[in-house]
């Protein structure tokens, strides 16, 4: 497994150059926070990394989409699978590396935001630059947890389609259109109430989870179940989608 992870890392750095995303995610908040965001809006801008959150989201979708599809595209899937490793080991190493790359890009955006904030404070003073650190880092943690769902969908599509273009497109669409999908699924709930348990609605509503009593109450009211039950359903969806993706990968002759 360690060898597979090292190889995935080598591909991440030399083939896919994920560090370019990390670099962009670092530079963008510094530039945006110090040129476009006035003091009174600084506080809010920190939560979306001065606009770099979209870079993080697109980076996540591209990284996830390419992980499998490029192996099919380059024909490297054959040497990848005709080795001594099990397909499960290969699958897990890829998932781990997607998460590692995503977390590094996210960390880079966080560092860029903090650097941008520090520069802003030096130039314009500290007014409007307070951060509630607990809320800020909890939001980032939730982002990673919720992105696992998004990765699962992109990986499922990329294993079905084997096409980088299809997987990247769907990934990017999903990364910016989750609100649209959620709106549609929420609308459909009106016609059949149990539909509220569909994975998109569960993910969308849980993504707003912040641990507050008010949020717990709202979730409980909507689903008619305790928050832990909703989390359990979310985890079950994740496991099912990843298992389905693995089954497709496992059965594929190349």
């Amino acid at each position: 497994m360690i060898t597979l992870l090292k190889q995935e890392w080598m591909k991440a750095v030399k083939q896919n150059r994920f560090y370019i995303w990390a670099l962009l995610a670092f530079i963008m908040p510094i530039a945006v926070l110090n040129t476009l965001i006035p003091a009174e809006q600084q506080f809010y801008a920190y939560y979306y990394f001065g606009g770099a959150s979209i870079i993080v989201a697109i980076a996540g979708s591209v990284i996830a989409a390419l992980t499998f599809t490029q192996e099919f595209g380059y024909g490297t899937i054959r040497p990848l699978l005709s080795r001594q490793y099990s397909r499960f080991e290969i699958f897990i190493s890829k998932i781990v590396m997607i998460i590692v790359e995503y977390v590094l890009v996210l960390a880079s955006a966080i560092l860029g935001t903090l650097a941008g904030r520090a520069i802003f404070q030096m130039m314009h003073g500290t007014t409007g630059t307070d951060i509630d650190w607990q809320t800020f880092f909890f939001a980032q943690f939730m982002d990673v947890v919720m992105t696992l769902f998004f990765f699962a969908i992109v990986l499922l599509v990329s294993n079905l389609a084997k096409s980088s273009a299809a997987a990247v497109s769907i990934g990017i669409v999903l990364s910016v259109a989750t609100s649209v999908i959620t709106a549609i699924t929420t609308y459909l709930v009106r016609f059949w109430e149990p539909f509220k348990w569909n994975p998109f609605t569960v993910q969308a509503l849980l993504s707003q989870f912040n641990g507050s009593k008010m949020m717990n109450f709202q979730l409980k009211m909507y689903f008619g179940a305790d928050v832990w039950v909703i989390w359990l359903v979310y985890i079950a969806y994740l496991l099912v989608i990843y298992a389905l993706t693995f089954m497709i990968f496992q059965r594929r002759s190349v």
């Binding site: 591909k11 030399k14 490297t76 001594q84």
Partner: peptide, 17 residues
């Protein structure tokens, strides 16, 4: 399979390597 090498149909190459 660690002791088997292969080149099937076309060379499998990572373009940026």
């Amino acid at each position: 399979l660690s002791k088997m090498g292969n080149l099937i149909e076309y060379p499998s190459i990572y373009p940026n390597f």
